[in-house]
Computed example of a mutant assay.
Amino acid sequence: MTTETYAALAQRILATEPRLGGVRLVAVDGPSGAGKSWFAGRLAKVANIPVVHTDDLLDGWEDQFSFWGRLEEKVLEPLRRGRAATYQRYLWHRQAFGGTPVTVEPAACVLLEGVTAARREIRDELSFSVFVTAPADLRWRRALERDGRHDVAFRAYLERWRVNENEHFAADATAAHADLLVDGAAEGDDDWYERLWPAPAD
C-alpha cells in the first residue's frame, strides 16, 4: 500500500480525456460501508467538482440495480449532451422522491458515487474509476452505525443488499476494471488516502 493525496489524484483525473460528451465522468464504486461517500466527498472538495450519489436515485431498497434507467435519463444523457442535469432525491424516510431539485452542470469533471457506479454499461464513458474496499465486518458495523443500528427491518434489507452486491461485483468484474483500488479501512485524513493498486511508479 502507499499513500496519495487527494490533490494529486485530482490532478491526474483532470489530465484525462472527457468521455461523456465534454465531461470527465469519474465513478467511485465499491460495497456498502466501504467508505465511498467519504472518499468521493474529500476528492470533490479538493477538486471543487460536483458529486451525484446513486442512492439519491434509487426508488427504495428493491431498486438496487434497476435505477440505472433513471440515472441515464435524469443525469447522464443531459451531461452527455452538454446540458445541466436535474433530478429529485429519493427521501428514504418518506419512501418517495421529493424535496428541492438537484442541478448538476456539465462541469469539466463530475463524480458518480455509489454501488454499481462503475458498472459495465458506463465503463466506456468513464474517464476514471475508483473501487473502494474494506473488510466485510467493518463494512457491516459502519452501515449499522450510519443507518440502522437498532432497526431489525434494516438489518434484513442490508443482508440481502450485501448478497446482491457481492454477486454483482463478481459478475461485473468491477474491481478488476478500476483505475484505482482504495483501502477504505485505512485511517486516512482530509488530505490523503491509501491505495492498494496500482503500485507507485519507480
Results as ranks from 00 to 15, higher is better:
28 V>N: 04
26 V>K: 04
47 A>S: 03
116 T>S: 13
58 L>C: 10
162 R>W: 10
115 V>C: 07
76 L>V: 07
89 R>K: 07
42 R>E: 01
111 L>R: 04
163 V>L: 14
129 S>C: 05
97 F>E: 11
114 G>V: 01
10 A>S: 09
81 R>D: 09
103 T>M: 15
59 D>K: 09
3 T>Q: 14
129 S>Y: 00
93 H>P: 04
152 V>F: 11
25 L>H: 06
137 D>F: 12
46 V>E: 01
120 R>F: 02
32 S>K: 07
198 P>H: 10
165 E>C: 13
11 Q>D: 11
79 L>P: 03
17 E>G: 06
190 D>A: 14
28 V>E: 00
103 T>K: 15
126 L>T: 08
181 L>S: 03
185 A>F: 00
184 G>K: 00
118 A>K: 02
47 A>T: 00
153 A>P: 08
172 D>E: 10
57 L>C: 08
151 D>M: 05
155 R>K: 14
45 K>T: 08
134 A>R: 01
195 R>P: 02
45 K>I: 02
158 L>W: 03
131 F>Y: 12
192 W>K: 15
108 A>V: 05
95 Q>A: 14
138 L>W: 13
167 E>G: 10
53 H>K: 06
81 R>M: 12
122 I>Y: 09
111 L>M: 04
27 A>R: 08
4 E>A: 12
75 V>Y: 00
169 F>G: 09
150 H>F: 12
126 L>W: 01
186 A>H: 03
79 L>E: 04
145 E>N: 15
39 F>A: 03
199 A>D: 06
62 E>F: 11
51 V>R: 01
196 L>P: 09
119 R>F: 02
65 F>E: 10
66 S>C: 07
47 A>P: 03
154 F>R: 13
180 L>D: 00
10 A>N: 03
70 R>H: 09
98 G>I: 01
176 A>V: 10
54 T>E: 04
194 E>F: 11
99 G>Y: 05
189 D>S: 05
123 R>Q: 13
27 A>Y: 12
126 L>S: 07
128 F>K: 09
116 T>C: 09
31 P>K: 14
140 W>L: 14
71 L>G: 06
181 L>K: 13
100 T>P: 06
104 V>N: 06
58 L>E: 12
97 F>D: 10
125 E>L: 12
135 P>F: 09
40 A>L: 01
45 K>N: 10
77 E>Y: 11
194 E>S: 13
96 A>Y: 11
44 A>Q: 02
52 V>A: 02
92 W>Q: 07
120 R>D: 08
114 G>K: 00
161 W>V: 00
42 R>V: 03
185 A>Y: 07
142 R>T: 01
43 L>K: 00
26 V>A: 02
144 L>E: 12
31 P>W: 04
137 D>R: 15
171 A>C: 07
77 E>M: 07
50 P>M: 00
105 E>T: 10
170 A>M: 12
156 A>L: 13
124 D>T: 12
141 R>K: 15
16 T>R: 15
200 P>W: 10
76 L>G: 05
17 E>K: 15
171 A>K: 15
